[in-house]
Design a protein around this nucleic acid. Structure first.
Lengths: 147, 147
DNA sequence: CACCATCACTTGATTAGTCAAGTTAAATAA
DNA sequence: TTATTTAACTTGACTAATCAAGTGATGGTG
């Protein structure tokens, strides 16, 4: 063993980096009493509101069940509102949700960016972004290979 | 709102891609009755064995408690062995563990690589790898900014 | 007009991880 | 030699997600 391919090395780096930076981000967001996942959901709502739970679930790559529980928590905290419209629940931010996001948004963005700003030039960041965009888009239409 | 920085866009892509491809990978590995996390742990053991739990925990970015539970499962399945050496437990693969890994390794590597091979040239993959390596290394020494 | 299928969402059971307190063995000091 | 500290690992309580079964409202069909 072990002839690693370049692809598998990239994969590992990505996995390690994301778990690591996700942990750091969770710690960072404690000051706003949010988790990274919650921040993500609030962001998506703020951009796309009003929207349904299924739409949201898809945007943040979580199951229906997952989004349901998550929104219960966020609703209990008073960050969001759900209205039963027809058979659909329409989600939107409350005042309080807007306020928290308004506060957390610039800081969280700066924090996320710092991971890249500290070691990559503007040019390199653009390159990284386009490469990852291609990779991500590809993965979205990927099927499992047959056994 | 919302002037996204290039860094925050990269971050989002990375997060979405890793959760997505992690899910696909878990599905893929079902044929070997493994999860992605388990495969990762077995790989690390196979490369570095014999090693202690704390060393392993650090390599796979998991807490001591997490590694402990994980190894209990892997031991129950008969993939690994733990020996009490001094006050340390030394971990190594069993025959069965070696065998599973031997089987799963090439397929999983090919699967991981396919995410990148399908859309990036060799050259581009190298670029992506070096950029991510720099970003990852930087995140490892990162401290939380003050409130 | 009553029944059935479907869609959007919720919920019980399970899994995987975190954190912090607990356990045990070894090393060090008195 | 006993007593204390430390290191490595485990465990109980909790959190967050998954999957699959359940619920209830809408809309179509015989």
């Amino acid at each position: 063993m072990r002839n690693n391919t370049i692809g598998s090395l990239i994969w590992l780096r990505l996995m390690r980096f994301t778990t690591q930076s996700n942990q750091l981000s969770n710690e960072f967001l404690k000051r706003f009493d949010l988790t990274t996942a919650q921040f993500d959901v609030l962001m998506q709502i703020s951009v796309y509101q009003p929207l349904t739970q299924s739409e949201l679930a898809e945007k943040v790559t979580v199951t229906q069940g997952g989004i349901s529980r998550m929104l219960v928590r966020l609703e209990k905290e008073g960050y969001i509102e759900r209205k039963q419209d027809w058979k659909t629940k329409t989600i939107s931010l409350t005042e309080k949700g807007e306020a928290v996001l308004e506060q957390a948004f610039p800081e969280q963005l700066a924090f996320q960016s710092s991971f890249f700003d500290e070691v990559l030039s503007e040019e390199e960041q653009k390159t990284l972004y386009t490469l990852m965009t291609r990779v991500h888009k590809n993965s979205q239409k990927k099927e499992l290979p047959p056994e």
